[in-house]
């Protein structure tokens, strides 16, 4: 089959390209039975035969020319396999020896069990108001680290935009035309399932974000679920329908404002902590949805950031725009 498509003019891609450039009408299935189609077929057959002959001649010459290097290659491959196994075995042995030297899991005398962990576990709920100690830890005690991670996401999305975003003009039009030709177009099966699943996925993602300080979850995982829901919606209904609620404008505002508010919240923590002031934001009763001070809001901001980033990656890689 690969021989048939050696001629670029006859391939599916070239037809798409011609259509995008406005040269001819796009035909997904080639016409059969008409005289033109028959002409095309005979042309195709002749071409494939010529290509076959050429290839055979080339292959014969290659075999005649390169008998010695082929032997060398075979020996090299055998040696390569043996060396690869040896390297893997030594690496595994080294790691196993290192693991056997580690202290036993869960012993009280381990170096990891110091006063920092004790403080987190004993006073975490009291000081942060979050029932989920991990969320209290990463968004309050170690908020600076999490802020760095959120910035990494922002910078990654910006870099992908720099590389892949298509500016206004002819190219943008052609990218929009090209977008739906290799994707399933208005597939009723995906649309029916997505119509049922997307709301469920959104509700679940929002639940994970809002419940981050009470149960396992939080901004990052909830945002990833929301982003997956958005991607599903796009692949089912196309960009035109998605752009009604998630276009470049909304994306910019949501992403930048989420990051700014996050930085504001953390600056408040840093300022109060560094000067030794009391935290004036009420922590509420642990276990309620509206409790634990700023952690709930930080979770929402992180979730927005992650959802936007995931969706932007998908959209940029698919058609170079949001």
């Amino acid at each position: 089959m690969s021989k048939k498509r050696r001629d670029y003019k006859l391939t599916f891609y070239s037809r798409i390209e011609d259509f995008v450039n406005g040269k001819e009408e796009f035909l997904l299935y080639r016409p059969t039975g008409t005289t033109e189609a028959k002409k095309l077929e005979t042309l195709e057959e002749e071409l494939t035969e010529a290509a076959d002959l050429l290839e055979k001649r080339e292959a014969r010459q290659k075999v005649q020319d390169n008998t010695e290097p082929l032997d060398f290659l075979k020996r090299f491959h055998r040696l390569y396999g043996i060396i690869a196994v040896l390297v893997c075995a030594t690496m595994m042995g080294m790691l196993m020896i290192t693991v056997s030297w580690l202290p036993k899991f869960g012993e009280p005398g381990n170096p990891a069990n110091n006063e920092v962990i004790a403080r987190y576990i004993e006073k975490g709920q009291e000081e942060t108001g979050a029932v989920n100690v991990v969320t209290g830890l990463i968004l309050n005690y170690r908020g600076f680290d999490t802020m760095g991670e959120t910035h990494v996401l922002f910078i990654a999305a910006s870099c992908v935009m720099i590389l892949l975003l298509i500016a206004e003009g002819e190219e943008k039009k052609s990218s929009y035309a090209f977008d739906r030709y290799l994707e399933p177009k208005n597939d009723i099966i995906i649309q029916k399932v997505a119509a049922f699943l997307v709301p469920v996925v959104f509700v679940f993602g929002i639940y994970v974000i809002l419940n981050g300080h009470l149960s396992p979850g939080g901004g990052f995982s909830g945002g990833a679920i929301l982003g997956a829901g958005l991607i599903m919606y796009v692949s089912a209904f196309g960009f035109k329908k998605t752009q009604r609620f998630m276009n470049e404008h909304v994306y910019k505002i949501a992403k930048v404002s989420a990051l700014c508010f996050y930085v504001c919240c953390l600056s408040y923590y840093f300022y109060m902590g560094a000067h030794g002031y009391d935290n004036h934001i009420p922590l509420g009763t642990p276990g309620n949805i509206i409790s634990s001070g700023l952690i709930l809001f930080i979770n929402i901001f992180v979730g927005t950031e992650v959802a936007c980033t995931m969706y932007a990656f998908y959209a940029l890689f698919r058609k170079g725009g949001l």
Binding site: L28, Y181, L182, E183, P184, D187, I189, I190, S235
Partner: peptide, 9 residues
């Protein structure tokens, strides 16, 4: 189903 359609197209 989607992979199938993709392969076919």
């Amino acid at each position: 189903h989607v992979i199938m359609r993709m392969e076919y197209s």
